[in-house]
Design a protein around this nucleic acid. Structure first.
Length: 422
RNA sequence: GUGGGUAUAGUUCAGUGGGAGAGCGUCAGAUUGUGGCUCUGAAUGGCGUGGGUUCGAGUCCCACUACCCACCCCA
């Protein structure tokens, strides 16, 4: 118990963190190319932020939040998603007073949802997310979808399908909701219990209910796309035109609804088909009224979140290898009496920019070589009686066994030559 | 929250009511200062927790807990 990570959490261990760093470097690069700069916001926020932002009827808020009282009797919640915190930071520092759009991204930000963990679903997971404030045109939506798409493609994710939908603005969605409600009421008897229960509160959810009988009903339900007003329709068409112009495959999927209340117009998900079924790896959309709803000016915005663990899982399933950096350029081996000489040589090599280490466990020379081999060190540098008395060090390329003896002071350059770095 | 499965060494797992094991990994050796291959040896176990049945339980029964999987929802 004591040594077991809490349910639904996972350690990233020293032997695996390079995979995260690899993804992060790709994400930073993609973001920078599009003018997004990093934002870092707290892991927890006032509960109120999510009640008002995410929506107090959503599953996330009603049953999945990590909420607690702090010692000052404030209700605090661990972030269940990334957007609300970004909006809060944007407002608190009046970033809307600067030239817009304001583009930001967050990297491997932890988010928490209290759910039953299973494959690809954790209670704490990490998201890469991008948010763009102050851009109302569909090119901004398209830009984000393309960024996410190209990023995943570059990483090697296969079977990626881009699903887009428009859920309109509050005005046209309100009208549609009424139409959908009356349709659902007509077919009430054919719906599952869940859908009946939530049909007045959140009728949209019935559209993506997985139950077969609900799917039968919903198939003939009115489509939101038919209820979009002229502006929303034009916006959605422009988005599609952008995606077509860039030649990326996508499909309009009216069932994409998203579990967060703040979305308007564009919603999208990037879904991969795995052997275990479809898996959403990235989801997002436009939220033109969230900033205002949280007490700010009317500023349209659009963004997405991407699950880091899910990306890693997909790469793993595809058998895509992420290059693992070498641990050591050079490993210093030594005879027992010369530990201090080895120590000083290691420090010197590090000063000269090489990844260097030595044995700290009083191992035999043979064992030191074994260890060096296991860590993947490219070169060993040996200090024995002969070397120390002559002020030299014997280098050995661990791949081709080539050996060379050089003065200690020239070790770093010689290591580089031996590794073929120069 | 509902249903199913699993729980034995660091790890993957065998173990048919009666001596707690194997592969991999770790460590050490195979003569005097050199790794990968091979060989030899060693260390590491409250058999998830608590009850029960039995002369005897890792093994059968019950409860609890944890983990995995599915549903729901999502990233």
């Amino acid at each position: 118990m004591l040594t077991q990570a809490p349910r639904g959490t996972k350690d990233v261990l020293p032997g695996g963190s390079y995979k995260w760093q690899y993804l992060e470097s790709k994400m930073r690069k993609a973001a920078a190319e599009a003018g997004f700069r990093e934002v870092r916001t707290p892991v927890f926020e006032h509960t109120e932020l999510f009640l008002r932002g995410v929506g107090d009827t959503t599953d996330i808020v009603t049953k999945e939040m990590y909420t607690f009282k702090d010692k000052g009797d404030r209700s605090i919640t661990l972030k269940p998603e990334g957007t609300a915190g970004a909006v809060r930071a944007f407002l608190e520092s009046n970033l809307y007073a600067e030239p817009l759009p304001c583009k930001m991204y967050y990297l491997a930000a932890p988010v928490f949802r209290y759910e039953a963990p299973q494959n690809g679903r954790l209670r704490e997971h990490h998201q890469f997310g991008m948010e763009c404030f102050g851009a109302k045109e569909a090119t901004a939506d398209a830009e984000l979808i393309l960024l996410a798409y190209h990023l995943l493609k570059d990483l090697g994710v296969k079977n990626l399908s881009v699903n887009i939908n428009s859920i309109g603005c509050p005005a046209c969605r309100g009208k549609y909701n009424e139409a959908l409600k009356s349709f659902l009421h007509e077919h009430e008897g054919e719906l599952c219990e869940d859908c009946r229960a939530r049909m007045d509160r959140n009728p949209l959810r019935a559209l993506d209910c997985k139950k077969e009988k609900c799917q039968m009903v919903v198939k003939n339900a009115p489509s939101l796309l038919d209820w979009l007003d002229d502006d929303c329709k034009a916006h959605f068409e422009e988005l599609q035109a952008c995606l077509k112009a860039e030649g990326i495959p996508f499909q309009v999927n009216p069932k994409i609804v998203r579990g967060l209340d703040y979305y308007t117009r564009t919603v999208f998900e990037l879904i991969t088909n795995t052997k275990d079924g479809p898996l959403t790896v990235c989801g997002g959309g436009r939220y033109d009224h969230l900033v205002e709803q949280l007490g700010g000016p009317e500023i349209p915005a659009v963004g997405f979140g991407m699950g880091i663990e899910r990306v890693l899982m997909l790469l793993d399933m595809e058998g895509i290898e992420i290059p693992e950096p070498t641990l050591y350029d050079v490993f210093v081996t030594y005879m027992g009496a010369h530990r201090m000489d080895a120590f000083r040589l290691v420090q010197d090599l590090r000063q000269k920019g090489l990844k260097a280490d030595m044995d700290h466990c009083a191992r035999s020379l043979k064992a030191q070589f074994k260890y060096a081999n296991k860590t993947g060190a490219r070169v060993t540098a040996t200090l024995g009686d002969d070397e120390v008395s002559q002020g030299v060090v014997k280098l050995r390329n661990m791949e081709n066994r080539e050996e060379v003896t050089v003065p200690v002071g020239e070790a770093a350059d010689a290591v580089r030559r031996l590794e073929g770095l120069e």
